[in-house]
Design a protein around this nucleic acid. Structure first.
Length: 255
DNA sequence: ATGGCTGATCGAATCAGA
């Protein structure tokens, strides 16, 4: 099974690249983030023509997540499933071939100390609560997406420059750690223990050609799936050329 | 050269991203 996650930074703006990437890479499942459109505006027809079913949780202008799959998706759930009022489309999940798949777009948090940063921490706490409430670590689960957190300094091009930002501060790392320790293996890290592999590069300051990036996109799996994983990679080539997303796709395969 | 931000929005200047 080949699964990928990709923050596309507007699915409509990235449609040509998206279809091309599907055709070239032929994943069984692709989790998308930052659709920046409503479900009505989502390019369902083009994606169906490429051979994929889709579950979409859209929102006007901001956020938006989806799961594309060769197989049918069932038991589609949108949002965190708690009773907290929240109009931001940041989480969708579905069962595919007996595995619970999550596509998550964790809030960025803008700046440490801002209301948005508090929302980020709360959102991650609610995500951990959801797993404790609705799932068990021995269920086959893959949690993937843009987490807007670099877990260790080896996932950051310049830890001195980024250390105090919303992507790296201890409070953000600790909030994600609560989710991780519920029962997830960081599958990408398992295959790249040396670090230094990034998934996001700023559009500014020639960050990509200088490889000044961070690993913000993650693939987490519970043990039943993690034990079967054979490979995980970042597709850096997709960050090149005309009109790329600022994130590259991250791919995992299990047998 | 893989390049000097990009995308969405009541359509220009602003917000948000990370």
């Amino acid at each position: 099974m080949k699964l990928a996650t990709w923050n596309v930074n507007s699915v409509r703006s990235r449609l040509e690249r998206l279809i091309g990437w599907l055709e070239k890479n032929n994943p069984d499942i692709l989790c998308l983030q930052e659709l920046k459109c409503t479900e009505d505006q989502f390019p369902l027809e083009e994606i169906a023509r490429a051979g994929y079913h889709a579950a979409v949780f859209g929102q006007k202008t901001y956020n938006g997540v989806a799961i594309l799959a060769r197989e049918e998706l069932s038991d589609i759930r949108r949002g965190l499933g708690d009773d907290v009022p929240d109009d931001q489309a940041r989480l969708i999940s579905a069962d595919i071939d007996g595995v619970r798949i999550f596509s998550a777009y964790v809030p960025n948090g803008q700046s440490v100390g801002s209301e948005k940063f508090e929302y980020k921490l709360t959102w991650l706490a609610r995500l951990a609560d959801m797993f404790r409430r609705d799932f068990r670590p021995d269920n086959p689960i893959v949690l993937t997406g843009d987490f807007n957190v670099a877990v260790t300094d080896q996932d950051v091009c310049d830890p001195d420059a980024w250390g105090d930002t919303v992507l790296c501060v201890p409070r953000a790392r600790e909030a994600l750690e609560v989710v991780r320790e519920w029962g997830f293996v960081d599958v990408f890290a398992k295959f790249h223990p040396e670090g230094g592999v990034y998934s996001w590069w700023d559009y500014r300051r020639l960050a990509f050609p200088r490889n000044q990036g961070l690993r913000l996109d993650h693939i987490y799996a519970t043990q039943p799936i993690a034990a079967r994983c054979i490979r995980a990679e970042v597709d850096r080539d997709e960050r090149k050329g005309e009109k790329p997303s600022d994130h590259a796709p991250m791919v995992v395969e299990w047998g």
